[in-house]
Each structure stands twice: as C-alpha cells, then as structure tokens.
Simulated assay, not measured.
Amino acid sequence: MKKHPNKHIREAIEYAIENGWDVIETGKSGHAFCRLKCILGHSEHQMSIWSTPKNPETHAKQIMQKVKQCNGEEE
C-alpha cells in the first residue's frame, strides 16, 4: 500500500489496520486516498481517507474515532 503524505493520517491508518480494518485502494480519479472498511462487515464502519483534507490532524482524529466506535470503545 502506498503511504499517505501526512504523518498524522498515516498513523491513523496504521491504527485502523492494527485494529482489524482493511484498506481498499481507490482509483486515480477523485480526492480519496483510500477507503477504510471494518473486516466484520459493519456497513456503517467505513470511511474515505482524503488525500489533502483541509485539516489533516482533525481528519486523523476522525479516523481513530471511527475505529474506536467499531471496537465499542466510544459511542
């Protein structure tokens, strides 16, 4: 998998992978870097990872929050 250019988002993606999420590479068109998806098949537990979000640190926090929700750590 290619590495995200932002270190905060890169760390959040690694956190998702460590917690059982799959990385789905997207095509070259569009603004999405990739898509993260829960391997348990929870349809609500997936999200697009943007290549150049307006605020990368906030986007990284959103990724981690989504993973924690799936693991039952947050509501």
Rank of each mutant, 00 (worst) to 15 (best):
1 M>S: 11
1 M>V: 14
1 M>I: 11
2 K>D: 11
3 K>V: 13
3 K>Y: 07
3 K>N: 10
4 H>T: 15
5 P>W: 09
5 P>S: 08
6 N>Y: 12
7 K>T: 15
8 H>R: 02
9 I>R: 01
10 R>H: 10
11 E>V: 06
11 E>Q: 03
14 E>P: 04
15 Y>M: 09
16 A>S: 11
16 A>R: 02
17 I>K: 11
17 I>M: 13
18 E>P: 08
19 N>T: 14
19 N>Q: 07
19 N>S: 08
20 G>I: 12
21 W>L: 07
22 D>G: 05
22 D>S: 14
23 V>L: 15
23 V>T: 13
24 I>W: 07
24 I>F: 11
25 E>I: 11
27 G>Q: 06
27 G>Y: 02
29 S>H: 02
29 S>Q: 01
30 G>A: 02
32 A>V: 06
32 A>C: 07
32 A>I: 06
33 F>P: 08
33 F>I: 05
34 C>F: 08
35 R>C: 09
35 R>V: 13
36 L>Y: 01
37 K>A: 14
38 C>S: 15
38 C>E: 00
39 I>Y: 12
39 I>L: 14
40 L>W: 13
42 H>Y: 10
43 S>W: 06
43 S>F: 09
45 H>D: 00
45 H>Y: 12
47 M>K: 05
49 I>K: 05
49 I>C: 13
50 W>E: 01
51 S>P: 00
51 S>W: 08
52 T>L: 07
54 K>S: 05
56 P>R: 09
56 P>V: 02
57 E>N: 13
58 T>A: 10
58 T>G: 07
59 H>Y: 08
60 A>K: 02
60 A>G: 05
61 K>G: 15
61 K>L: 15
64 M>Y: 05
65 Q>M: 11
65 Q>S: 14
65 Q>Y: 14
66 K>Y: 03
69 Q>E: 12
71 N>R: 05
72 G>E: 00
72 G>F: 01
73 E>A: 01
73 E>G: 01
